[in-house]
Design a protein around this nucleic acid. Structure first.
Length: 570
RNA sequence: GGGUCCGUGGCUUAGCCUGGAUAUAGCACCGGGCUUCUAACCCGGGGGUCGUGGGUUCAACUCCCACCGGUCCCGCCA
């Protein structure tokens, strides 16, 4: 298997290591990093300088003087510039990248990791439709899943369904008290009665007892109550699934909270926690002491009436997940920060596998935070509808001559792409405020920008095919690819594996979004500066066509990794 | 009150974990480019006390402390 950039880094590390030793120094880490001045740069001279009592500049020069580059290396040269050691890739690397892409096609740059990962994301309560805050979870989670899969992991995606919490009891109660609008999308109709029920409970607090009663019945396994809960949950989940599908988000499983009660896992895990001697009864409730983990307050795992809480069921769920996977990853909103820490600590206390968390900050509205209960939210369906309408106008403006079904299809792909890209490109620790104007703006360099460069590549290839200029069986001469924009494009493509690796390790999908934009940028510059079909001679033309085909594949892989469609024309 | 995350040109934003070379892009603004592979594009320009004040360091957007502003959380909700 050829893994280009990771190989390049390995070679640089090894060559640098030898040179450092030959120069009489000692170091573990070569302190490599990206640079605007070279393909890779090392800051190791700074570190060695203080130990060796020499100036960083002298150290860098001494190391550079000891560099030995073997024949056929991916490295062209290593140069000391002041205290820095700058490294450039060789023609061998550049041409090897093109050949590797041609050979491996869609598999290029992936499949270098292994292991089983269980990734949970979205898991919104089935008390209404997904709103623009929930889909930040979905998009981060789905993109992460795609990154991990492509990196080679065996990934199972879960949507954990809360089918027995207080909210669901309210929904179930609401279905018996308010009319359910059969004509609406079911998740929206559920939200409708849920909002009404909450208003009703606020106005008549004495009715809250009816909700408590329902929760106790469900926990005890009362068949009739369970059936009404299930009905409510299934309605909401069916609507949510439809929305997720529109966004190219798919889960493998939808495990339900109640299954962990019924299997007895919840009561068993409560006993396990009790056995640690950390529990006590506080005002009738069973609490766990996690002070030694840095949590001042205790964690309630059983109510006074003996029923379990979300956390209790989540403990059982995570225990189960830990038995099925090497790594457990959960994508949670910032409101779960404390509880997830407590969950992890408790699992540690009973010797279970601990999850890793990807936490993202909240999306709010200009007027304040969103709330399903009070009906203050913008649904994902609304956003997707509007973006599609807007995208249609944009296509119509640019390709007025095309048939309607073309415009509609492109509008769909571009609209979803714009939404997904906009959300995933922002680092998760940034809280955001939803803004319609911003969301519907197609002028900025977002998802459609990347899709456009893919369409441009396809367009060249289509024309080459139509005019009989593309002969895939003909040998190409990669030595001819020497234009600056060609080399930049190839180097960007070579980075694919490195980006995937880095994002998979750090669980930060937004950096992949940045890479995608840079790759599209590199292609657009190539497109502008280098003539493909009108190249000076036939061999150069065939070689450039091959390069465009490589770019097309890497762009398509990149778009797919982000969950964006790759239109051949737009 | 305790904790948490954020604060980078008019707006949005990368870099911060793992300190080092002129702080990354986009939008908006100004100027240029379609008889040649889709101008949802490309090229150039102006615009930044990296919230404030200390500290550590040869070196701080990056690490530490304090403060200011905003987010989220703080036992029987999820």
């Amino acid at each position: 298997m050829i893994i280009l950039f990771l190989d390049f880094i390995d070679q640089v590390t090894s060559i640098l290591n030898d040179a450092v030793r030959s120069a009489g120094f000692e170091a573990e880490d070569m302190e490599l990093g990206p640079s605007q001045h070279a393909d890779l740069s090392s800051r190791i001279a700074f570190r060695l300088a203080s130990v060796a009592k020499q100036s960083p500049k002298d150290v860098a020069e001494k190391i550079a003087g000891e560099i030995v580059i073997p024949k056929g290396s991916f490295i062209e040269k290593v140069e000391a510039l002041g205290p820095y050691l700058n490294i450039w890739a060789s023609r061998n690397f550049i041409e090897g990248t093109v050949l590797a892409i041609r050979e491996q096609k869609e598999a290029f740059g992936g499949n270098f990791s292994e292991g089983r990962i269980l990734l949970e994301h979205t898991s919104a309560n089935p008390n209404g439709p997904l709103h623009v805050g929930h889909i930040r979870n979905s998009i981060i989670g789905d993109t992460l899943g795609r990154i991990l899969k492509r990196a080679g992991y065996d990934v199972e995606l879960h949507y954990y369904v809360n089918d027995m919490g207080r909210q669901i009891a309210i929904v179930s109660w609401a279905l018996g008290h308010f009319e359910f609008d059969e004509s609406s999308k079911p998740d929206h109709a559920i939200a409708d009665v849920y909002i009404k029920a909450n208003a009703e409970l606020n106005a008549h607090p004495e009715k809250v007892a009816e909700i408590d009663k329902l929760m106790q019945l469900v926990e005890k396994g009362d068949a009739a109550t369970i059936e009404t809960f299930d009905k409510a949950v299934d309605l909401a989940v069916s609507g949510i699934k439809e929305t997720l599908k529109k966004m190219n988000v798919a889960h493998d499983e939808f495990p339900k909270e109640s299954s962990f009660i019924r299997s007895g896992d919840v009561s068993r895990i409560v006993e396990e926690i009790k056995a640690t001697g950390r529990t006590e009864i506080d005002n009738g409730a069973l609490v766990v002491n996690l002070q030694d983990y840095g949590f001042e307050k205790t964690l309630v795992i059983q109510r006074t009436d003996g029923t379990s809480l979300y956390t209790t069921r989540d403990l059982a769920y995570h225990e189960w997940k830990g038995e099925r996977a090497d790594r457990i990853i959960d994508v949670f909103g910032a409101d779960h920060k404390l509880i997830s820490g407590q969950l992890k600590a408790t699992l540690n206390a009973i010797g279970k596998k601990e999850p890793e968390f990807v936490i993202f900050e909240f999306v709010s509205l200009p007027e304040g935070s969103m709330s399903t209960r009070s009906g203050k939210f913008i649904s994902a369906d609304d956003l997707l509808d509007q973006i599609k309408t807007q995208a249609y106008e944009e296509v119509d403006k640019r390709r007025p001559e095309m048939p309607d079904d073309f415009k509609a299809k492109v509008a769909e792909i571009v609209g979803i792409g714009a939404v997904r890209y906009d959300i995933v490109k922002v680092s998760p620790e940034k809280s955001t405020v939803f803004d319609w104007k911003e969301a519907l703006d197609f002028e900025k360099q977002g998802g459609p920008f990347i899709q456009y460069s893919h369409a441009r590549a396809c367009s060249i290839l289509q024309k080459a095919r139509d005019e009989g200029l593309w002969k895939p069986e003909e040998p190409i001469n990669t030595a001819l690819l020497v234009e600056g924009s060609e080399v930049s494009l190839i180097k960007k493509m070579a980075m694919f594996d490195n980006m995937l690796d880095q994002c998979a390790k750090e669980l930060r999908p937004h950096t992949f979004a940045i890479y995608a934009r840079e790759l599209a940028d590199a292609f657009n510059q190539f497109y502008r500066f280098v003539s493909v079909l009108n190249a000076e001679d036939e061999q150069l033309r065939s070689t450039r066509i091959a390069l465009v085909d490589c770019a097309r594949m890497v762009l398509a892989n990149t778009l797919d990794t982000l969950g964006l469609g790759a239109p051949e024309s737009m």
